[in-house]
Write a protein that binds this DNA or RNA. Sequence first.
DNA 1: TCTAATT
Length: 488
Amino acid sequence: MATLTNGQVDGTVHGVGVVSASTNGLVNGLNHSHSPAGCPATIPMKDHDAIKLFIGQIPRNLDEKDLRPLFEEFGKIYELTVLKDRFTGMHKGCAFLTYCARESALKAQNALHEQKTLPGMNRPIQVKPADSESRGEDRKLFVGMLNKQQSEDDVRRLFESFGSIEECTILRGPDGNSKGCAFVKYSSHAEAQAAIGALHGSQTMPGASSSLVVKFADTDKERTIRRMQQMAGQMGIFNPMALQFGAYGAYAQVQQQAALMASVGQGGYLSPMAAFAAAQMQHMATINGLPGAPLTPTSGGSTPPGISAPTVTSIPSPISVNGFTGMPPPQANGQPPAEAVFTNGIHHYPGKYDHLRDKRTHTHTHTQKFKSAYPAAYGQISQAFPHPPPIIPQQQREGPEGCNLFIYHLPQEFGDGELMQMFLPFGNVISSKVFVDRATNQSKCFGFVSFDNPGSAQAAIQSMNGFQIGMKRLKVQLKRPKDANRPY
DNA sequence: TCTAATT
């Protein structure tokens, strides 16, 4: 590694004085001797075959002006953009870099990629063509059920006969231990396909619990969905959004939207509500330790930047019906209607509630709507709303036979309230109880929910059994009648 | 058992 020295890397302030005076590559280019000949200094132009580079593992305290000096070593920069979160503006730890000259990009990649670790990072800097530069072809494999002792070279040897391997990475935890899986990227889809055919299930590595898994790696969209699901487990009681919408509503909404977008392709329509929820989730993922970051949008302007407060009528997608208008309309007694039925993932409320839905639809923002729909949730999370929750913790009651559900694999942090929130969309919940270990006061991760009619119970089973929260899937089934396990 | 990040 010839060009990126310790001094340059460690001294994050090095050169900043020089560069910070200028705000674009044009001026820098004029000040530097590295400006390539083919790139006129006065008009920033890039080669028609220029490569956009993705730069990863950038400390979050470095912005464009700090990074510029590092990369100008290799040529004149056409564009350098640090990626920031759309809503929070937070530095994502990576950037896009385009040099005027294709050659500069190749030089930079050669000299920097994985060659140096920037201060505070525990992985080396990444300099490689951005995803947008590649032929978007599916040629990356996920390899599971490896032996944790196997190295990159071992994996390479296993896969090399099927094609030329561009990239081979063992997934490791922060401690550097293998997670028993890897990514292998071939130069073509056909090679990857060949490897799947030959290797998937072909053998069982010593110490692995089942045979080798070789499949195409998740797409970005699949990863997004996966993250949302994992995050769902975390946000249960901490994210007020989950309470507003009902934990179930928010998760289902985002998952379905993501799935919809995946099927529609890029540029698919994301409902404002799903975007809101997604932003919240992103937010929650990164908020830990961020001083001053707002935890909830409950006071004053209750919409995040970039999201106006739309009405339901502005959401054309039928999917959007679910989790929104599908929420139980507010009732005078604070209870949802027992008539709610659930079909094909979409809630339908009979005509008698239409006026409520229409009224809210046309005159209220989402936030207002959910304030009224979920006053209990708001009461828990904010003092800003003076009205006490009308949903009063009910007596421990059991419904008639066929109305009582047993729920297993609840998130650890779910209490009676969250359990009820999750099942409210299916009908009139007359009781919800999470079982708690007497000694530790910890949830035992199972509980019971009772409805006042068997239809609601069945609807809940249909929709919620197998519903993924975090890494777990809910088990939702009818509670065994009391005498079933007392055969005498 | 799906990376740390991809406008």
